[in-house]
Design a protein around this nucleic acid. Structure first.
Lengths: 164, 164
DNA sequence: GCTCATCGTTTCAAAGTTGAACTATTCTTC
DNA sequence: GAAGAATAGTTCAACTTTGAAACGATGAGC
């Protein structure tokens, strides 16, 4: 991806220069390793991954601990199919319930149960501690701000593309 | 994850404050959406994902277009198991060959074939263009530098933890 | 030169994720 | 109010990824 760095605009793609490469390689490594590093302890403690955790946490913060599938999918950046499977698993374990919406019978509500909330209460402190240890303890205040801006900018573009 | 922000150090975990949350949510979203956004066009063009692409690209840059499984696993942050499967697929499609090492008969070399190189030549320009569009076109030079530093710091800590 | 731990890799079964096809419901528009 | 488009979710089959267990090969200690 760095070959031919002196290529002029007319002769093929502009390859990444050294500084871009120095950002790119750690970024893709990070995108893979971070979820993994967060998943591992969650798996051991509760048999769930970060994405399941995110679903429960999102529900926990919602009014009446309830969201419909579409909202939950958007908040957790999951495909409908993935979410449907995941909710089935969570339901089977007693952490959420599905409930038909009476107004619009296409939509399903997902409700966090007391057991689900209890699980969350149990694992959340450890999870947050890990997030701190892996991310925020390593960064200056200024870097945290910068990271927020950068991630928001990239996510904005990516989502734009996904819709358009 | 933001509840009880005024908790003192003795009363449970330190939850994320507003600025940390403003970095955290986009970051995990990014970690999920970026690989996805890069995979999609690669899937359509070549039936591979970013990780397969990374394997081929890494081999392409290696001496004699050859690495052993362990090296390739490290460079692409893949588990041995995952790499083994992936190489089998790439081999079946004729893009790499496996070759026994004669010195140490535990190790397998993986060699990029001419077909593999040709595939790479075909898809690399588009892939780099997408990386530019999704990432580098959105960031100032200063942000690229900053992102590199941040990602390297986080990856450093995560890898440390994985070994220790 | 045994023995035993370690290394590099593969295989296994289970679980997760995927896009596409499908069902059921609601909205539009004429 | 009927026909067709759009929306919300689910199911399907194919594929990927997972951790654990297995494998043979090598090195280290004695």
């Amino acid at each position: 991806m760095t070959q031919d760095p002196a290529s002029d605009p007319t002769s093929g793609p502009r390859w990444l220069d050294e500084e871009e490469m120095a950002a790119w390689l750690p970024l893709i490594h990070l995108a893979h390793a971070l979820p993994q590093a967060l998943d591992k302890p969650l798996r051991e403690e509760a048999g769930i991954t970060q994405i399941y955790y995110a679903m429960l946490a999102t529900l926990s913060g919602a009014p009446d601990r309830t969201l419909n599938m579409g909202e939950l999918a958007r908040f957790t950046s999951s495909s409908p199919s993935r979410l449907s499977h995941a909710v089935s698993v969570l339901e089977k374990r007693g952490w959420v319930d599905r409930k038909q919406c009476t107004d619009d019978r296409r939509v399903q509500f997902v409700v966090l149960t007391d057991e689900g909330q209890a699980l969350l209460d149990r694992v959340a402190p450890g999870h947050v501690a890990r997030v701190r240890e892996l991310v925020f303890d390593r960064l200056s205040r200024e870097q945290v701000r910068s990271l927020g801006e950068i991630a928001a900018a990239l996510v904005g573009r990516i989502d734009e593309l996904g819709e358009g």
